[in-house]
């Protein structure tokens, strides 16, 4: 499912800021990052590269149908 899991988050918010498509948000309850809008993940890995504790895992498959130019 694109961005797949966030484990061991320390709540710094770097991934939220660095995601171009606003996929990740910080929970108002536990102040940790969670995957809010996975359908909009473009698998660019900027969040993973920005995370200071390597908490983010990203998959290769998109969680919604993919349209390509020919098949």
């Amino acid at each position: 499912m694109s961005i797949k899991s966030i484990v061991g988050c320390i709540g710094c918010g770097e991934c939220v800021q660095s995601c171009p498509t606003d996929v990740i948000r910080l929970s108002t309850v536990n102040k940790k990052a969670y995957i809010a809008y996975p359908a909009d993940c473009q698998m660019c890995h900027l969040c993973r590269m920005s995370c200071p504790v390597d908490a983010i895992t990203i998959d290769s498959e998109k969680s919604i149908p993919v349209m390509v130019s020919w098949g």
């Binding site: 809010a36 359908a39 498959e61 998109k62 969680s63 919604i64 149908p65 993919v66 349209m67």
Partner: peptide, 29 residues
């Protein structure tokens, strides 16, 4: 949170074919 529609994701990969395909996707709920 997930947009799964009951159809395996693998089946979606590489989908193409224009309006017809889009209409099919739409009918997948």
């Amino acid at each position: 949170m997930s947009e799964k529609s009951g159809i395996s994701r693998r089946q979606f990969l590489g989908l193409s074919g224009g309006v017809v395909a889009a209409a099919t996707l739409a009918s997948m709920g």
